[in-house]
């Protein structure tokens, strides 16, 4: 029996779901190995479950919690995909600002309170996380294959620098640019440094990320303390490591 898969989206740009659709070379082969039970972005007939694996994108606002819990109940394995689902995403930043809506709307009267938005794991048990903004589609396929083979998926525990060094890129840090590669979990094949653009940490912290040493390094390169914290928090401010980061 083919495993049943659901792909869901909550608060986010839907870019991670789109990445799955961008798997053009193998997209039409996927239904031969899995039953796509629910994927609203791609098909019109969708069932709630039962699901062997659900991939859930987006951060969660209060009113979405019930929906998320339903998915959890219907799924054997629940996977957070993308940095919104894993860490709350860019939108989590509002938690660090008082009255964030004021920045945009000034004193205009607001009909809604600022949305309270959080990662999936704030509300339900998450079995695996595939971070990234967006996810890396190859990593998504590798993950799927591991599950199909009945193997425990191996999550990467090394930083971007590993992928970068193997490509023999001229290190941006050495060239004086601030790069978050050393504290960011690998999995994107160092896309940004490969193109001479510093890693901005969209995939979130690597296991045992040495934040204080990275902060020292950034200060040596001349970053001011406010910017330093901002850099760390841009994509995954919901990550504990970056919440606790000190300049």
């Amino acid at each position: 029996m083919k495993p049943g898969v659901g792909i869901f989206g909550f608060t986010g740009c839907a870019g991670c779901q789109l990445e799955i659709l961008n798997l053009e070379d193998i997209l039409l082969d996927l239904p031969s190995v899995v039953d796509i039970i629910n994927f609203r972005m791609a098909k019109s007939e969708n069932l709630d479950g039962p699901l062997d694996i659900s991939f859930v994108e987006g951060s969660i606002m209060k009113y979405q919690v019930g929906e998320l819990k339903k998915i959890r109940k219907n799924s054997k394995i629940l996977v957070a995909i993308g940095s919104c689902a894993c860490y709350g995403g860019v939108q989590y930043l509002q938690n660090f600002i008082e009255k964030p809506w004021k920045i945009v709307y000034n004193d205009k009267k607001m009909k809604y309170a600022s949305p309270d938005t959080k990662s999936l794991s704030s509300y339900v048990k998450v079995d695996y996380s595939l971070p990234g903004c967006p996810i890396d589609k190859e990593e998504f396929v590798d993950f799927l294959k591991s599950v199909l083979l009945g193997r425990k998926p191996k999550m990467k525990s090394y930083p971007i620098c590993v992928e970068c060094k193997l490509r023999e890129n001229d290190c941006l840090l050495e060239k004086g640019t601030i790069c978050l590669g050393p504290v960011t979990v690998a999995g994107c094949n160092s896309k940004c440094p490969n193109n001479n653009y510093a890693c901005e940490g969209c995939r979130g912290p690597v296991e045992e990320a040495n934040i204080s040493s990275q902060a020292e390094l950034m200060k040596e390169k001349g970053i001011d303390p406010v910017d330093l914290i901002r850099r760390f928090r841009m994509f995954t401010s919901g990550a504990k490591e970056f919440q606790e980061a000190k300049a």
Binding site: P159, C161, K165, P182, N210, S212, S213, Q214
Partner: peptide, 13 residues
């Protein structure tokens, strides 16, 4: 150990 970022670069090169 406090300083090392655990990036592995030293051994890859």
């Amino acid at each position: 150990g406090d300083k090392c970022l655990g990036c592995g670069s030293c051994s890859f090169v």
